[in-house]
Amino acid sequence: MPPSALAENRQLDEDGRDVQYTDQKLIYFSSASEYTHRFVQKLNTGSARIPLFASEPELIATEPYVLLIPTYGGENGRRAVLPQILRFLRSEQNRQLLQGVIGSGNTNFGTAYCLAAKKISAKCHVPVLYTFELMGTSEDVLNVKEGLDTFWTLKSQKRT
């Protein structure tokens, strides 16, 4: 983390930017097609959604969380991480509290399948926890639901 980036983040805060804090353990992005949103609803767990438009307040995590994000294929993997997600990850606090990534996508996109999750994993040194396609099947919902429960239980045991 170059210090210049740190300063830049602070500057943003001092600018009095509209910021929204969340202590949810699951933070996700979903475009207007709402696939990811629908998947998250089926998990029946607390969550926060990264804003779609730059005019909306910036989302800042206050507790450790897992990030769930889609990848839309194409452009040979370039720009796989959407600008809204990049904006979210530019916050150092958001990067520090990130514990893992779940990716959604489509195997039709070949090597770009769930690429955004893999890129974030590599960049932020957190594991890719799970990948699934489109809105996810009922098996995916179950796997992620149970997986997250176990994941957080283990984390809390480690901490104590």
């Binding site: 720009r79 600008p83 893992g100 594991p127 997986g147 176990t150």
Partner: peptide, 23 residues
């Protein structure tokens, strides 16, 4: 990638996958 079930290549942090993006 199924870190949860412990199957597959699981606890692998993504390797350098085209992180060339300026962003």
């Amino acid at each position: 990638h199924d870190f949860f079930s412990g199957s597959g290549s699981s606890y692998v942090i993504g390797k350098a996958v085209n992180t060339e993006d300026e962003d």
